[in-house]
Simulated scan of single mutants.
Amino acid sequence: MSGGGTASLTDAVDWPLAARAGAVLAPAGPTAGAAELREHVEALRASAHRAVPHVADVTRMRFADGAGPARVLVVDRAGWVRANARSMQTLLRSVPAGHVARGPATSDDDDPVAAVVGGLEIGGTLAMLSTKVLGQLEPFGDEPTLLLVAPNVLRVQRQLGLDADDFRLWVCLHEQTHALQFGAAPWLVDHLRSRVGALLGEVAGTAAAVGEGSALARTRAAADLVRRFVRQPAGTPLAERLLTPDQREQMAQVAAVMSLLEGHADVMMDVVGPKVVPSVRAIRKAFDARRATPRGTDLVLRKVLGMDAKIAQYVDGAAFVRGVRRRAGTTALNVVWDGPQNLPTPREISDPAAWLRRVHG
């Protein structure tokens, strides 16, 4: 294309290639006999269903009319990659196409090459992440789907020497809490989709500015991106270094919601107590120690992919949930699911009392 125009962010990536490359690059995971693997998969699936009433009991939440438990899929790492490639493509369709302006120097021949490069980059990143995820709720598809990554659950259970049945149920309690969050608050999917879409659109517009206009304009735009990158404090995730102040604020708002979701699930998976998961305290102790002391490739991946920020979401969100429950109880906390106006702000995530004053007076 030789004269400007617009494109969707989905056009920048060869998504089938991303799914295929990521699936091929994803390591297979721990080895086991066929009978043991079948038993593990079936036990995971059964644990996912067992978790549903326990989550409803401890959260005191209910599915909204027309909603129900998520579909459960037990997958390998390649399956997780393929599912997330589809999810990312779906989410990026919400980004306004006008944000992704093609510069006048772009040719039709450049687009397929760029899409292939994008597909390989996305596929490689998903392959790396596929070794770390135990479970995931995918809320953006045609129906909510709970993905349980069988080899990863088995690997962590073996590494930490945990009771297999207890650990499988513990993981499922976390993921089914996510399913209930979105099932009890159907507005949450569109809220997140619009917020993330707006942020991605803004970032895409900033990046497109580098490829538009005169050589001087492109140089100035690139220099501005570099200045923002180097001025960020040490430890700032790579994804945040190129954001403008307004974009960082938008990201902070999204992060606050994610902190609530992750922290709420992290607390509730422990609240069930030893009557449901007999070794829950031992599991939590071992799991927190693992999070706190990454080693080898785990440490490298956390730095490259910004996973420290993800872990911080669990910690900050759990502190918020515990703070509200301690001060006002579970019923007061559950008002957070009534509408987007009740979601905690970035400041309130670290100040539960401020959220209580604003929402409950």
Rank of each mutant, 00 (worst) to 15 (best):
M1V: 10
W15A: 01
L17I: 03
A18G: 00
A21N: 05
V24K: 09
L25P: 08
A26T: 08
P27S: 05
A28P: 06
P30N: 04
A32F: 12
E36R: 07
E36I: 03
L37E: 12
R38H: 08
E39K: 02
H40L: 12
A48Y: 00
A48G: 02
H49P: 02
R50N: 07
P53H: 00
H54C: 00
V58D: 02
R62W: 11
A64F: 05
A64R: 05
D65S: 02
P69N: 04
L73V: 06
L73G: 03
V74D: 02
D76S: 01
W80D: 02
R82W: 03
A83E: 04
N84A: 05
S87Q: 05
S87L: 08
M88E: 05
M88A: 07
T90K: 08
R93D: 08
V100S: 13
A101W: 09
A105M: 14
A105T: 15
D109C: 13
D111R: 12
V117T: 14
L120V: 13
A127L: 10
T131G: 08
K132L: 11
V133W: 03
Q136F: 02
G141D: 01
G141Q: 01
E143G: 03
L146R: 00
L147W: 05
L147T: 00
A150I: 05
L160P: 08
D166T: 08
R168W: 08
L169E: 15
W170A: 14
V171T: 15
C172I: 11
L173F: 13
H174S: 11
E175W: 12
A179E: 15
A179W: 11
L180Y: 10
G183I: 13
A184M: 12
A184S: 14
A184Y: 13
V189L: 11
L192S: 11
S194W: 10
V196W: 14
V203M: 10
V203F: 09
T206I: 10
A208K: 13
A208Q: 11
G211H: 14
E212L: 15
T219H: 15
A221W: 14
A222L: 14
D224V: 12
D224K: 11
D224F: 05
R227W: 15
R231S: 15
P233R: 09
G235Q: 09
L238S: 10
A239Y: 12
A239L: 14
E240T: 07
E240G: 12
R241H: 12
R241P: 08
R241F: 11
E249Y: 03
Q253F: 02
Q253P: 05
V254P: 05
S259H: 00
L260N: 02
V280P: 07
R281D: 15
A282Q: 06
I283N: 04
I283G: 04
A286I: 08
D288C: 04
R291D: 06
D298Y: 01
L299I: 07
L299K: 14
L301P: 03
D308N: 07
D308T: 04
I311Q: 03
I311A: 07
I311P: 02
V315W: 01
D316F: 03
G317F: 06
A318R: 07
A319G: 04
F320C: 01
V321W: 04
R327H: 07
T331K: 10
T331I: 09
L333T: 01
L333H: 03
V335R: 13
V336C: 01
W337G: 02
W337V: 00
Q341A: 07
Q341R: 01
R347T: 03
S350C: 05
D351E: 10
D351W: 01
A353D: 13
